[in-house]
């Protein structure tokens, strides 16, 4: 009856916005990873710039607070020689007065070439992508519980650098799956890249409905969930999960689902540990693990810049064609 069209892609199937991993091909994802590889060296140079986005204006449009995602996007844009503008919009201000559509019309008058959008509502970047004029790209920097595609790609990039064959991997994602846009995007990316075994580990209150239909197995015991895993991804636990009666306390969560050295022995000896940050030491992860050699948490941040440079240069290239 109705035809679903992926609005991220142009008529030739190239990425023109980057809103969600879902529905993208393996070729597109591998292309982003390969592209990011070429940018890793830029940060090591004395002059950390390439002229790919010279003359372009990138607007960081953040309706929700963020430090790490916003700054890595800003750095990535600057290393691509773009002009960057940061706009932080207090969500309460827009919900009271100006509508999102009106805010957008105002911003469009500034003639930006790209919007990097973070919003507390799922689907907001897609809404914005439908409103902007052609030639303007939108990159999703995290929307509600829906998607965080650049985070997922930087995690894929980090995994590939340590475990190059996705087809051989077992990946466990542990923590608040229900409210996590990172987990959703990672699951799609891991599936598309051919990872045969993906597990999610959490109490039932933090597992969203019917997630097994995405092709993951659900575990409620951490040792069982990370057994023989090659990659363990821990998610940040928000404090409001306790006040909304999803969990009794942070310490009980740590005792049951926290990643400790003891639990980690269940995974493969060379397993890598990742976390999108910022971490809650002693709630989802033991300090000793976070700082151990197995932990790639800081490397993820560095890789984030390369991956964001890659996605920005790809979408701008396609949008302006």
């Amino acid at each position: 009856m109705m035809v679903k069209k992926n609005i991220q892609l142009d008529a030739a199937g190239r990425l023109k916005h980057f809103l969600s991993i879902e529905g993208l091909s393996k070729t597109i994802l591998v292309n982003i990873l390969d592209h990011a590889e070429t940018f890793t060296s830029v940060g090591e140079r004395a002059a950390k710039k390439v002229p790919l986005l010279r003359g372009k204006t990138v607007v960081n449009l953040f309706f929700e607070a963020s430090t790490r995602t916003r700054t890595t996007f800003e750095l990535a844009a600057k290393r691509l020689s773009a002009d960057v503008m940061n706009i932080n919009i207090d969500a309460s201000a827009t919900s009271k007065g100006e509508s999102l559509a009106d805010t957008l019309r105002t911003l469009e008058a500034m003639q930006a070439d790209m919007f990097i959008v973070r919003h507390q509502d799922s689907g907001a970047p897609e809404f914005i992508a439908r409103q902007v004029s052609s030639g303007v790209s939108v990159i999703n920097a995290g929307d509600g519980r829906h998607a965080h595609p650049t985070q997922a790609m930087l995690d894929m990039f980090t995994i590939r650098r340590h475990k190059p064959i996705f087809e051989n991997l077992t990946v466990a994602i542990v923590g608040d799956i229900k409210h996590s846009r990172v987990a959703r995007s990672e699951i799609h990316a891991l599936k598309i890249l051919g990872v045969p075994e993906i597990r999610v580990v959490a109490p039932k209150t933090l597992i969203p409905a019917e997630i097994e239909k995405l092709g993951v197995s659900v575990h409620h015991d951490i040792q069982q969930g990370i057994r023989d895993a090659d990659v363990v991804i821990m998610l940040r636990l928000q404090k409001e999960r306790m006040s909304s009666a999803l969990l009794p306390s942070g310490s009980e969560f740590f005792n049951t689902y926290g990643l400790t050295s003891k639990n980690l022995t269940a995974a493969k000896p060379d397993a890598i540990v990742m976390h999108p940050g910022p971490i809650n030491r002693g709630i989802e992860i033991d300090s000793a693990i976070a700082d151990s050699k197995q932990s790639l948490i800081l490397e993820q941040v560095a890789n984030g810049i390369a991956v964001r440079m890659a996605t920005m240069s790809l979408v701008v290239g396609n949008a302006s064609l």
């Binding site: 519980r145 409905a209 997630i211």
Partner: peptide, 15 residues
Amino acid sequence: HEGLISTKKGLAGIP
């Protein structure tokens, strides 16, 4: 509706 679609879209579900 709470189900696969609400999980995929990241929209809160109504069971």
